[in-house]
Design a protein around this nucleic acid. Structure first.
Lengths: 193, 193
DNA sequence: TGACATCTGTTACCGCCGGTAACACCGTAG
DNA sequence: CTACGGTGTTACCGGCGGTAACAGATGTCA
């Protein structure tokens, strides 16, 4: 059954090419450009991924898997809860700092895919993961609303602050992670009281 | 100088038509559709707004102005800091609940415009406003990093949790606002310690 | 009045995109 | 030799954002 191996191997090659194009062209990478980079033509791309959102999903999964692993490690490692949260946020920020183009592509693919079909994208998986982590950390029941709401909120918080930071770069990564950790520990609320 | 009045009046008519189309077609509203809704043709639209992001910006400003006013009222009204934050978040959620299509259009326009040109969009203005509010509330210097970072974080937090809520609708608006306020007051951090 | 410029509006086009139909090639099974 | 499934291509479709080029009204100056 070398045909299946060939298919998978080819798929990897195509994804690698897509990766390169995204890294070069940013989020506006077109299917034709990706096909050209891979040295093939569009219909082949469509036969493999069906759809642009299909390629989005495959590419997202690829990057998301490694990032999620790193985040789980950071979150479940040693130290106080606060140290672990700080470390986890820093891990996230490090990723988007090193690969901003890919990161932007993933976030946009999230929007594009969620609007059209039912593809679990980048941020969505992050939220699910974090919700499970929060439920475990706080010993909540699995269906507790708080874990879902807070996970969505925290992901949005880090994402939004991270995006701003990518543009203006007005402090060190560690300082930003610290400020966000402070915010999660009620630095704003308790200051305002 | 009725010509200027005419121009402005026309502009309002066009924006109203754009509004209707966005409300109907969602974020994928096309320039041709907007022109048709207004009973004119595309070049006129382009003569008035130059560009799609120009129309985006004009439309965003329109909605953002009223929303920002409401948010300022909520934030600077009476009550404890916590009550005011709760009320402000609820105001935001009420807006995106009542006009989800418009809201999605604004957020997307933010991305589209910020990627291409230098248009201060919806979320950006929200962040600036909130940063000023935070600096005032906590008596920080105007250039204090914390106000900017926290503003970006809080806006992202509410936006992300609000988007999730729009899709699943698994609790009342007030309950969601309460959970997010809790989060800002360190409910997660202090629970995890 | 007639000639000219200007503003408003149109049609018809451009290039690019995502996506696909239809056909050419080539190794293999009968 | 033939029939066939898979791989690859070219060439197209409709729709998008955006624009050039032209047509008609309107006001201005001689």
């Amino acid at each position: 059954m070398t045909v299946l191996q060939d298919r998978d191997a080819r798929r990897e090659v195509l994804l690698a090419a897509a990766d390169r194009v995204v890294q070069r062209d940013g989020a506006s990478a077109s299917m034709a450009a990706i096909a050209a980079e891979a040295g093939i033509t569009k219909p082949i791309l469509y036969r493999h991924f069906g759809d642009k959102s299909g390629l989005y999903a495959a590419l997202a999964e690829r990057h998301t898997d490694s990032l999620l692993d790193a985040l789980v490690d950071a979150l479940t490692g040693g130290g106080t809860p606060r140290e672990r949260v700080h470390r986890t946020i820093d891990t996230y920020l490090a990723t988007i700092e090193q690969q901003p183009q890919v990161y932007r592509f993933l976030v946009q693919s999230e929007e594009a895919a969620s609007a059209h079909g039912q593809v679990r994208g980048f941020l969505r998986r992050l939220q699910e993961l974090l919700a499970a982590g929060i439920a475990h950390e706080l010993a909540l029941e699995a269906e507790d609303l708080r874990s879902f709401v807070w996970a969505a909120g925290i992901v949005g918080m880090v994402q939004s602050a991270g995006e701003r930071w990518l543009e203006v770069q007005d402090c060190s990564r560690d300082a930003l992670a610290g400020l966000l950790t402070d915010l999660l520990w009620g630095a704003y609320g308790s200051s305002a009281d």
